[in-house]
C-alpha cells in the first residue's frame, strides 16, 4: 500500500548564471499577435537557437523568461522588454543576434544587456509610454481641434470592457502630452524580410491630401492602464471624429518620465555600467 511519490529531482535543474534584459520590437503584420502568441513564438525561437535558457523546477518546468508590460494585440511596438535567465554565460550581443536570427521577421531583437549588479528591476524604470497613432479618414486640422478639446478637459471618463466587467477609466488623467501631426516624424521603417514580401506592413502611405493624421501621445502607466484606444474614445467624446478611423498604433518608447516630459531609456543605466562607466548610469545602487 505504499503511496507512490514522484517528485522531480531538483538536482536536474541547471541553475541560472546570467540574466539578460532584452529590448525588442513587434512590427508589421506581427502587431496582430497577442502577448501569448509572442511568448510561444519566442520560447520556440529560444529552443531552435539553442540559447541555454534556465528552467524553473517542478513538475511542469517553464523557461525563465519574464515580460514587462506587453503592447496590446494590434499595436506595433519599437519598445518591448523582457528578461531571460541563462544556465551558461553568453555574450549579450551573441544572444541578441542568435535570437534575432531565429525569430520571424517582424519580431526583432534590438538589444540585450546584462543588468548592473544590484540594478533596479526593469519595471521600476518604466512608468510611461510614447505612442504614435496613424488615423485614416481624418484631417490633421480636425484632429488638432479634437486634441485641444481633449487637453482642455479636466477629466474624460471612458468605458472599457475588462476581464472583470465594464470599467470606467479617466482617459485624460493618464495623458502627459498629446499632439496632432501631419507628418509621420520618427516613424519606424517597415522591416524588410521574407515574410513581409510584397504586402504592406503596418504603415499608412503618406497622403498629401490629408485623409490621415497622426497622433503623438505620451501616456502615464496607471492601473487600470489607459491605452491609445481609450484616448481615441476620449477624443471622440469631445469632438465629431468618425467612429472608424482604422488606427495604426505603434509604441515608440517606454521609460521613466522626467520633469521635462521625456522618457528615459530603461536600459541606459545597465548599458553605461556594461560600458565601464557606472557613474554615467545616474542610478543609485539599491
Amino acid at each position: 500500500m505504499a503511496r507512490v511519490q514522484r517528485q522531480p529531482d531538483a538536482r536536474d535543474v541547471a541553475p541560472a548564471v546570467q540574466r539578460l534584459r532584452v529590448h525588442f520590437a513587434k512590427r508589421g503584420r506581427l502587431r496582430f499577435t497577442s502577448h501569448r502568441d509572442f511568448q510561444r513564438v519566442f520560447e520556440r525561437a529560444v529552443r531552435r537557437a539553442g540559447v541555454p535558457v534556465a528552467y524553473s523546477a517542478g513538475f511542469s518546468p517553464h523557461p525563465k523568461i519574464s515580460y514587462i508590460g506587453a503592447a496590446a494585440t494590434g499595436a506595433a511596438s519599437e519598445a518591448e522588454y523582457l528578461e531571460i535567465s541563462l544556465t551558461e554565460r553568453w555574450a549579450p550581443d551573441v544572444v541578441r543576434k542568435t535570437l534575432d536570427d531565429a525569430l520571424p521577421p517582424g519580431f526583432d531583437i534590438i538589444e540585450a544587456v546584462e543588468p548592473a549588479p544590484g540594478a533596479r528591476p526593469l519595471a521600476d524604470r518604466i512608468d510611461a509610454s510614447h505612442w504614435l497613432v496613424t488615423l485614416g479618414g481624418v484631417s490633421t486640422a480636425a484632429l488638432a481641434a479634437a486634441v485641444d478639446a481633449f487637453m482642455a478637459a479636466d477629466t474624460l471618463p471612458v468605458e472599457r470592457v475588462l476581464k472583470d466587467g465594464r470599467r470606467t477609466l479617466d482617459a485624460r488623467a493618464a495623458v502627459v502630452s498629446l499632439i496632432a501631426r501631419g507628418e509621420p516624424v520618427g516613424f519606424p521603417a517597415e522591416p524588410v524580410g521574407e515574410a513581409s514580401g510584397p504586402e504592406s506592413g503596418g504603415v499608412a502611405e503618406t497622403d498629401p491630401v490629408g485623409r490621415y493624421a497622426i497622433l503623438d501621445l505620451v501616456v502615464r502607466h496607471l492601473t487600470p492602464a489607459v491605452r491609445p484606444d481609450d484616448v481615441l474614445t476620449g477624443l471622440r467624446l469631445v469632438s465629431d471624429l468618425p467612429p472608424q478611423m482604422s488606427p495604426l498604433v505603434t509604441r515608440l518608447a517606454q521609460g521613466l518620465l522626467d520633469e521635462t516630459g521625456r522618457l528615459a531609456d530603461p536600459l541606459a543605466p545597465d548599458r553605461a555600467v556594461a560600458a565601464g562607466s557606472p557613474a554615467a548610469a545616474g542610478e543609485p545602487v539599491a
Binding site: 496582430f32 497577442s34 482604422s246
Partner: peptide, 18 residues
C-alpha cells in the same frame, strides 16, 4: 489589414508561419 482590428484573433489571418 485595415479590417483585422475589428475581428477576433486577427493573427490567424496574417500567415507568416515559420
Amino acid at each position: 489589414e485595415p479590417l483585422l482590428m475589428q475581428v477576433s484573433k486577427p493573427v490567424q489571418y496574417v500567415g507568416g508561419e515559420l
